[in-house]
Design a protein around this nucleic acid. Structure first.
Lengths: 258, 258
DNA sequence: ATTCTGCAAACTGTTTACAGAGGACATTTT
DNA sequence: AAAATGTCCTCTGTAAACAGTTTGCAGAAT
């Protein structure tokens, strides 16, 4: 009846603590607040989030399955570290996914869908003109999400997003240089053009070329070091006191088991 | 020193109970022992596996993340039910992945790798000749795994396998009709031929065509009913007594939230 | 006869408690 | 002085207990 179905008593338990913890943990990891290689101290995390260790363990187990976290028995869970090669492999998978979505969409894109994409490309152009990297970044995410959603399936969208999260483990932030924005958006336009023309082969090529371009743009603008130095510091006993500390990094195993 | 490195005290804790439970649960689900739509009763599962509810919850949470299980707050976790459309989408994703792996492999396949694949195709041919569906099935899995591993990355292999597990949720078992074996293996040979020729485009086409063929062979040999009837039985109270019962199905929500 | 209400059992979500493993530091030994 | 070793302490892994919710059934009221 009421407009807002809020229970008068306590807030309705609409989702479990474990899922909330999982979301928060994922956010912390993807934002870099907890850098790769860091050990996830269950007790500290539980205390910081105001829950017990149970939900934290469940959340970490979920992140482990989805690839953001690596667990070593009796040693704990660590934020996954992606090697440069693995990151490139992930890019390649996104190439394949994007190409496929574009190819499928070419044959059946509705004028409405094309209009939506067109608007996004326009928006990115204006963002590039005003050097608004943040806005370009957001629109770019939307564009690719829309592409996957229209051409692929919901499963494809989730896959693409998950791969993106893994990439975020490698590159701290999407480095969008001003000149890259224009180049990138030109490729967007090429995709759109092929889609509008209904040319499946061209759309696929354009989609693949775009992600490959992103991979290249990233690879050329990143430090040439093959593997990250990672945290080598050993905090000793003091850090374990945990007064304000919520995470503690030990030796930081890169990829112990997989 | 000894041949079998078994600890004299208790068996070495080489992996956690939660991971063991997760493996066992996955096996149960994929084998059909716990059919889609079934609710996973934590207490019953814990009792059956001889552990407490903690590891079971962690395992279920992991399966939820990997897509085999769907969880509803305060109602429990259910084995996921794939609709026919979703299954087709998963097939399409495998088409894309396989095509991509084949394309990449074409340029750089070593004679050794080609020999390995050749042996598998030969093995499948002999299996088809003797109508040994089980052996064909196993070799087929190996062939595709090898293809992904050689042409793609370890990430691609895992992705492909995970998608395969999801498909298993839909089709109880890979139905390999005798005539299908020959058709399927002819496509394998075509892939191999293109790979040996180093023709990337042809390899991709052949790889894609093969999975599409598998999709078609499955779609034509499956009941035309769009959605599965699923378990509609309401077991009442008797089943909940749990003397030998380890699972209990209630209303079986297909895809409550995603 | 049907529907609604109230009670009870079961199950999920969460917290708390306990045992074993691993690591860091101090001491001892060579 | 350097290496080895012993001890303590933290943290993970697991189990058990506790609170809240949902579900099913029985009985009452219409």
């Amino acid at each position: 009846m009421a407009d807002s179905p809020v229970s008068p008593l306590h807030i309705v338990r609409t989702q479990s603590l474990a899922s909330l913890v999982a979301d928060e943990l994922e956010r912390m990891i993807l934002s870099g607040e907890i850098p790769p290689g860091t050990r996830l101290n269950e007790q500290a995390l539980a205390a910081r989030l105001g829950v017990s260790r149970g939900p934290v363990r469940e959340a970490v187990r979920g992140l482990d399955r989805s690839g953001l976290v690596v667990t070593v028995v009796n040693q704990g869970s660590f934020v996954r570290q992606l090697s440069a090669e693995e990151a490139m492999d992930v890019y390649d998978l996104r190439v394949a996914l994007t190409g496929y979505a574009c190819e499928r969409l070419a044959g059946r894109a509705t004028p409405e869908q094309l209009g939506t994409l067109e608007d996004m490309v326009q928006g990115m152009e204006s963002a590039a003109d005003s050097d608004d990297a943040a806005r370009y970044y957001a629109l770019n995410l939307d564009f690719h999400s829309a592409l996957m959603s229209m051409g692929g399936s919901s499963r494809a969208v989730r896959l693409y997003d998950d791969l993106g999260k893994e990439l975020t483990l490698f590159r701290r932030r999407a480095l969008v240089a001003p000149e890259n924005m224009r180049e990138s958006n030109a490729e967007h336009a090429a995709i759109l053009h092929a889609l509008a023309a209904g040319d499946a082969a061209a759309a696929r090529m354009a989609g693949e070329a775009h992600i490959r371009g992103g991979k290249r743009r990233f690879a050329t603008s990143t430090p040439p070091a093959g593997t990250e130095p990672a945290g080598k510091k050993r905090p000793g006993k003091a850090a374990a006191r945990g007064e304000e500390e919520h995470v503690q990094d030990r030796d930081a195993p890169g990829e112990p088991t997989r």
